[in-house]
């Protein structure tokens, strides 16, 4: 169990002229599982590497339990880092890979051979790879390599576990099972864990809190529930979860975009964007008139594709009972249950 508090204060980093991080501040609670979510180029990996000590910022501080480690080496910070392509040592067996961090210690710090072996066995069991210690990384599947990388990072007893796109190189089924695995391992070890992803589903499913980055800045930090239900910005709303986006204008608390009008309480007059999640649209007697172009049934859900009279594309998703009697070509009414309206940034 670790109780490390990480505090990132006003971190900035430029690569040439291109700013990767622009004044990022973030606090990470002990034992937390945090996702850094953003599109490519948002600075999420740079932030993770700055926390790890693999990248050093131009400005700002990284504090571990109040201690300034901004320019300390990765080893001094005692972090466990899982690389995107795992970076396993190809010429070493799985067991040697996992033992590496303990094996390179010097003098009194180096545990006896038997202790290292016991630790390797324990970690192999934790990631459910018992008996594969003698294999080489090339003899393992992608998912198994990922587990080896994870246990190698955990071997040194890190104060924080950092993962860069941990599931990026895996196929969909393995991804899903490994997500659960990571959650289980996090809960079992209690180590503070930060992972980078561009997959919002992954972030929402796995993390305690999600930090959403865009263009080197943090747009919002919150629980999956918070960022999904109360997105702080148009970017977050569009990036987390699916949403219909309508460009229009607000006048006197009402948003209008062609035939669409929505309540926009507290939004200043002027041009604005409205986001409506597909599942916040459902059939009703009164509402948005949409001409159906396609209906797809997905398990318990019906997904509807259509257009408003002035040609705006609309997607809706609701319980499949609601779709009874709907046919492509007909015009239906959809009530808007909830909308997020943002002035332009």
């Amino acid at each position: 169990m670790t109780d490390l508090t990480i505090s990132i204060q006003d971190l900035s980093k430029k690569f040439g002229r291109y700013p990767a991080l622009n004044g990022v501040s973030l606090d990470i609670a002990p034992g937390e599982l945090l996702a850094l979510l953003g599109p490519s180029g948002s600075g999420k990996t740079t932030l993770l590497r700055s926390i790890a000590g693999l990248e050093f910022p131009d400005q700002g501080k990284v504090l571990f339990d109040g201690e300034d480690v901004t320019f300390a080496s990765a080893a001094a910070r005692r972090v466990g880092f899982v690389f995107q392509q795992y970076a396993l040592f190809a010429h070493m067996t799985v067991a040697k890979n996992i033992a590496f961090g303990l094996d390179v210690r010097k003098g009194a710090d180096k545990p006896p051979k038997a202790a290292i072996e016991a630790r390797v066995e324990e970690l192999l069991k934790l990631v459910e790879l018992d008996g594969l210690g003698k294999r080489f990384p090339s003899q393992l599947s992608g998912g198994q390599r990922q587990r080896v990388a994870l246990s190698r990072a955990l071997a040194v007893g890190p104060r924080v576990l950092l993962l860069d796109e941990p599931f990026g190189a895996l196929d969909a089924t393995v991804r899903k099972s490994l997500r659960k695995e990571l959650r289980r391992i996090h809960d079992a070890t209690g180590v503070t864990t930060i992972f980078v992803t561009h997959d919002q589903e992954e972030a929402l499913e796995l993390a305690d809190r999600v930090a959403i980055l865009n263009l080197g800045e943090i747009e919002q930090v919150g629980t999956p529930h918070e960022v999904y239900d109360s997105p702080a910005s148009a970017f977050v709303c569009g990036f987390v979860g699916e949403a219909n986006r309508f460009e229009g204008a607000v006048t006197k608390g009402r948003f209008t975009a062609g035939s669409i009008t929505l309540a926009a309480k507290g939004v200043a007059d002027g041009p604005a964007s409205a986001f409506v999640r597909p599942h916040d649209l459902h059939p009703a007697k009164d509402g948005l008139a949409v001409k159906v172009s396609r209906i797809v049934l997905q398990g318990p859900l019906a997904k509807l594709d259509g257009h408003t009279a002035d040609g705006r594309h609309v997607e809706a998703a609701f319980a499949r009972d609601g779709v009874e009697g709907f046919n492509p070509g007909m015009t239906v009414k959809l009530a808007v249950q909830k909308a997020h309206i943002y002035p332009p940034t």
Binding site: L54, A74, A75, F81, A87, L88, F100, G101, V104
Partner: peptide
């Protein structure tokens, strides 16, 4: 990446090179 992995696990420059 492999070198970074080694360094993050506490290996020094020479150890990283040789191993």
């Amino acid at each position: 990446a492999e070198e970074e992995a080694a360094v993050s696990m506490g290996a020094g420059g020479l150890t990283t090179f040789w191993r």
